[in-house]
Amino acid sequence: MPIVQLNHIRKVYDTKVAVADLSFTIELGTMFGLLGPNGSGKTSSIRMMIGITVPDSGSVSLFDRPFTRKVLARVGYLPEERGLYKKMNVLDQLVFLGQLHGLSASVATARARRWCERLHIAEAIPKKTEDLSKGMQQKIQFIATLLHEPDLILMDEPFSGLDPVNAVLLMDTLAELRREGKAILFSTHRMDQVEKLCDNIALLHRGQLILSGSMREIKSSYSRNRVLIHFEGDDSFLRHPSIESHKLYNGNVEIKLRASATLAEDAQSLLAQAIRHARITRFEVMEPTLEEIFIEKVQETLPIKNGRELSMAMLDQPNGGALDA
């Protein structure tokens, strides 16, 4: 049973097409990644999923039924623009938001305490929200989204602004919720996060869906033409004929091999040449990263210039290492 089903939804603000003809489904017990650079229509899509805005055309079904506001009690939504009542104390705030989702005060109180302990912020419970650090506020918001134990969890950029330790904590929590059978959608412009977490993805660009499907299938449909080498010494092996392009960083290089029927052999011959000149500490052959796939896809559908701008913008993300911690 699909938890979310979008059928050709479309939303236009004035002259700007926010979302053009978007369709996908999310199944129970899966994690879905909605990807795309800033302004690609991720937030607009999520808002239409839960009736904050209404699509101009197309239809939304939640829990296998046409959208009604009743199902919102089973949905947890964490908006990208975080917001809490600053003057309110944390427990009151969580209980209030829980009650809005239909919980009783006592249940909400008990769950709020349990969650705060689970996310290591029990000491924040009696404090005012404005006295908390930003990371803590974000955790409070995270808890507020989950307090009513929703079956569908929608998170818009859930990890932005979190330090690596907390990002991993939240990611682990989401993974646990998926194991419990919840459906989770999160949007991000950071592709590296998605590769580890998501079962299915949808790639948006300027309101257009340019790629969607299962993570594994998408990845395996691409040949293993990427080579990562960590080395010390001479880098003259980079002139090897099978290399189409490479990016050389301090002591490591990301190589894209020329398309050919014998990719595996090409990689081995490259390794052989590298060993002759340099000391190799790491060698890995792999599929292109999601980010590379995304850039490629965008370049297919649009003039190259735009694609390059895009790749610059996406590589230029701050605290890119948050997830590798």
């Binding site: 839960i50 904050i52 506001r69 919102l72 009690a73 949905v75 939504y77 964490l78 908006p79 623009e81 975080r82 917001g83 809490l84 009542y85 600053k86 938001l97 809005l100 989702h101 918001q141 507020a144």
Partner: peptide, 16 residues
Amino acid sequence: EEKTSRIFEVMLATIR
């Protein structure tokens, strides 16, 4: 205040 604290979007997910 609701707009500047941006909490309304959380609220609008459950209420009219």
